[in-house]
């Protein structure tokens, strides 16, 4: 574990954990965690440039595929498919490519590794809340990624394609808020799936299922409106949508701002409750080898 945890004797940690610290101190701790995780992302300059390049290439490809579909030869071109205009779909493609790293859908298994290595025992002794520890780190990471990966990718899209601007500045602000909420929903989902490590030894099957479900039901691959009705109806009420689709709908004006943000907030409430409950159950039956 990196620094960022206050110096504390491990033996006294349990006592500290039970006695709530002053509110200000707790907030400062989590802010510090977020700040360090934020800074960490700037260390890999080469990887960042490479990542922007890859996101750009994929954005161009996916956008071109949708353009070819809208301009299909036998139809002579259409501009409204399932309530989605050509420009709206192209905008979604670039928002999705730009959000990709910020919401970090793939490959975050730190909690599972923590459980499997047994390191979680030490983590649980430390004087902070395990869930909030990772959440604050994830928020710091997300802010960095949105700046160094999201913004350049979106600008690439604007430069090369007809990406729409939000209709009002209120919508743009709501979009930014919606991204923050999307990161929290994404974090909760990832945290919950990570907790599977308490019960299964090989998480890769679960990881792949999770990726497949997220890719389709979040709207990452295509707007949900293009999916078959039964799938779309289910996807419309599930939390996956809050990670990708909702920020898009808020940006494009397809949903009242408060409805979009409200949907995300409701799911955050539910997912935090589920994550904490599962964490408590897992903690209780945790068996670690060695010592």
């Amino acid at each position: 574990m990196e620094s960022g945890t206050p110096a504390q004797s491990r033996f006294g940690a349990d006592a500290v954990r039970k006695s709530p610290e002053s509110g200000g101190e707790v907030v400062r701790l989590y802010l510090e965690l977020a700040r360090r995780s934020f800074q960490q992302q700037f260390a890999y300059r080469g990887a960042t440039l490479a990542g922007i390049f890859v996101n750009g290439i994929f954005g161009i490809m996916i956008a071109s595929v949708f353009l070819a579909l809208y301009n299909s030869q036998s139809s002579g071109g259409m501009d409204d498919v399932q309530g989605w205009s050509k420009d709206q779909t192209i905008t979604l493609v670039w928002i999705n490519q730009s959000l990709l790293m910020t919401v970090y859908l793939w490959g975050w298994w730190e909690v599972t590794h923590n459980i499997q290595s047994g390191a979680i025992v030490n983590e649980l002794l430390k004087p902070y809340d395990y869930f909030c520890y990772w959440l604050s780190r994830d928020l710091g990471r997300a802010l960095a990624h949105s700046l160094i990966r999201g913004v350049p990718t979106f600008l690439t899209g604007i430069a090369l394609f007809d990406v729409l601007a939000p209709e009002t500045s209120a919508r743009f602000v709501a979009f930014l808020v919606s991204i923050v909420l999307a990161v929290i929903v994404s974090f909760c989902l990832r945290f919950i799936v990570n907790l599977a490590g308490f019960w299964v030894l090989d998480y890769r099957g679960i990881a792949a299922m999770f990726t497949a479900v997220l890719n389709v039901l979040s709207g990452m691959l295509a707007p949900l409106a293009f999916l078959p009705d039964p799938v779309r109806i289910v996807a419309d009420v599930l939390p996956f949508k809050a990670v990708i689709m909702t920020p898009n709908e808020v940006y494009l004006g397809q949903v009242p701002i408060w409805q979009g943000l409200g949907f995300q907030i409701l799911w955050i409430g539910a997912l935090v409750a589920i994550a904490r409950k599962l964490m408590a159950i897992g903690e209780r039956q945790l068996v670690v080898q060695g010592g």
């Binding site: 070819a68 579909l69 301009n71 299909s72 030869q73 498919v81 293009f226 078959p228």
Partner: peptide
């Protein structure tokens, strides 16, 4: 699913 709504791709 996409091809249920669109005619062809190029």
């Amino acid at each position: 699913s996409l091809f249920q709504h669109f005619e062809d791709m190029g």
